[in-house]
Design a protein around this nucleic acid. Structure first.
Lengths: 116, 116
DNA sequence: TTCTTTTATCACGATATAACAATATAATAA
DNA sequence: TTATTATATTGTTATATCGTGATAAAAGAA
């Protein structure tokens, strides 16, 4: 039950839902997500930590960057079910705007984007 | 998204998970749940209110009693999915104990049980 | 009516969570 | 080495949530 609650809480926050819906589109580093969400680095990093602890996302390091993506293997008993549930969530206005912004920043060189 | 978060939060609490797992076994009034959960009336009633607002449970009045059960029709976009997800949750020790207690009180006359 | 029973709601203290600034850590470049 | 960049962690403040006592509301019995 502890794991289940951890994951249910993880998807109970607007910011974390926004992050997960973005990660459905690919793999992103913290500074890219900062830019799209328009939130401070510590805030984004903390939310990603919560999602990682819950087993909903995985990350890989590349130099100073950390890239996050959705977990695609069974980390605990329910993580894939929770992600599936979220994939059924219809995009509301906020998510749609995030995805528009995503398309813009996806074109940009990450080395330039993250310095700004 | 608002509804989704409401339901995700509703299943993010140990007490509410215990209630939902009990309601998988049938229909119960507040005082029966109080007895099984060993919690105060205001606490149980509040949790049931949260579950009702989230569309996860329904209730019917019979005299002074209010009987709660799991929603079995589509109240919002996700309620059945959330209940399905919860039905996959493996019973841990606490839930097992609740179900044992449930079997005991199910035999008893509700008019006597609820007066004690 | 008055009393009892059951449930819902309000108010409160304790705890948890959110966003953020400041700081620490780790990798790389100069 | 020192400086820079990206991320993680810590501490603070504001808000949200949990459990509970007190109260209110609704139904029925006396």
């Amino acid at each position: 039950m502890r794991d289940f609650i951890l994951q249910a809480k993880a998807i109970s926050d607007e910011t974390r839902i926004r992050i997960l819906k973005l990660l459905e589109k690919g793999e992103f580093c913290v500074c890219q997500l900062m830019d799209i969400l328009d939130m401070k680095q510590s805030t984004v990093s903390k939310h990603l930590g919560i999602l990682k602890t819950a087993g909903l996302v995985e990350c890989r390091k590349n130099g100073t960057w950390t890239f996050y993506k959705l977990s695609n293997n069974l980390i605990n008993n329910y993580n894939l079910d929770f992600l599936k549930l979220l994939s059924c969530l219809k995009d509301d206005f906020l998510i749609q705007e995030d995805k528009k912004r995503l398309k813009e920043i996806a074109k940009q060189d990450i080395r330039i984007l993250c310095k700004s």
